[in-house]
Structures are given as C-alpha cells and as structure tokens.
C-alpha cells in the first residue's frame, strides 16, 4: 500500500483548541490543561484512504497574534491547512478570516483549506452561528465542520474530509518508501520570512 505524506498545518486564534484537536486525532486523548503551543509542535498520524495510506505530518502552530509571523514556516509546502475557531468566541472567527486572507496571499496555491468550529460541546454559549460560518466556508470553497476535541466529535471526520480533497497522485509509480517531497511548490524566496 502506498504511503503518502501530507503536511497539514493548524492555524487559528489562541485557545481555540488546535492542539486539543491534534491530540484527539493522534492520541485519542483530551487534556483540559494542555500547554499553550510555543512556536509549533509536530505530530504524525497515518490513516488509510482508499487504496492509499495518508501519513499526516501535522504542524500545530501557536495561536497568539505575535506568532503569526512564524506561520509561513509551517504552512509553506502544506497540502492542507486547518483553520480552527472557537464557536463560543466571535473574536476567533474574525481571526480565522485573517488567516484565510493570509493563506490566499502567501499560502501554497492549491492548499486545501478546512474550517473547524471547535468546542461544539459548548453550544449553549455559542457566539458564532453555524450557518454564518458554513456560508463563509462555502464562499471560499473550504471544508467546513464543527468539532469537539473534548467529546471526540468530528475530529476523525475532519481529517477524512481533508484526505478526500487531496488530489490523487499524478504519478502512481512513485516508490512508496521514498519520502514524499513536501515542497511540491517551492515558495519564492521573497515570500519567506524565516
């Protein structure tokens, strides 16, 4: 079975639950007091997809505004970006829009964008209506899903949806044991900030 390595980065405001989603996805574990991410953290998880194995190389980034300038290091060469917001924080949805904009300007051209409205277990204090978010996602042709890392809702599904959106390999003869070149699109040097 062929293994495809897919670089995925998680973006979004601080505290929306990016690390929690990754932790749920990779270790099927939820920690209330998970440390804030500094810089970024790196995890992998392999899931089957059709007749391929997709090995997700997940870069979980830091959410605080001033870490934004580091983000290009992580989304550079990514096959997909998951932009997470917290359904109980309108602010985080505004931040999400900024990320969408930044990806459009500086991100890889054919990057798959997924929008995840996390903490949907907290529906009673929701600030971002699902409809609005969904419409926004459709407007930019992004995947949309509401998740709960806490209750393990839609986390697997999120990554499955991404898997499906990844275009199949143009060259199936590629040796599965060779590491897949992540930089399908070497970014122009002017775009680099690091």
């Amino acid at each position: 079975m062929a293994i495809r390595e897919l670089k995925v980065c998680l973006l979004g405001d601080t505290g929306v639950g990016k690390s929690s989603i990754v932790c749920r996805f990779v270790q099927d574990h939820f920690d209330h007091n998970i440390s804030p991410t500094i810089g970024a953290s790196f995890l992998t998880k392999t899931v089957p997809c059709g007749n391929e194995l997709h090995k997700f190389l997940i870069w979980d980034t830091a959410g605080q505004e001033r870490f934004h300038s580091l983000a290009p290091m992580y989304y550079r060469g990514s096959a997909a970006a998951v932009i997470v917001y917290d359904i109980t924080k309108l602010d985080s949805f505004q931040t999400l829009k900024k990320w969408v904009k930044e990806l459009k300007e500086h991100g890889p051209e054919d990057i798959v964008v997924a929008i995840a409205g996390n903490k949907n277990d907290l529906g009673d204090i929701r600030e971002v209506p699902m409809k609005e978010a969904k419409e926004f996602a459709e407007s930019i042709a992004a995947i949309f899903i509401e998740t709960s890392a806490r209750n393990a809702v839609n986390v697997e599904e999120l990554f499955q949806k991404i898997s499906k959106q990844i275009p199949p390999l143009e060259n199936p003869e590629v040796d599965s044991n060779e590491s897949f070149k992540l930089t399908r699109q070497p970014p122009p040097s002017t775009r680099r900030c690091c």
């Binding site: 500094i38 970024a40 992540l182 690091c194």
Partner: peptide, 20 residues
C-alpha cells in the same frame, strides 16, 4: 539533505529557554 528546518524545532527552545 533532508530539508530539515531546525528552527521549526529550536525556535521555542530559545523563546522559553528550554522550559518543558
């Protein structure tokens, strides 16, 4: 050779002086 950008790893060593 393996296109490893160490700063992805080392950035936070410096920022928090290796805590954690």
């Amino acid at each position: 050779e393996h296109s490893i950008d160490v700063s992805l790893i080392t950035f936070n060593w410096f920022l928090v002086v290796f805590v954690e």
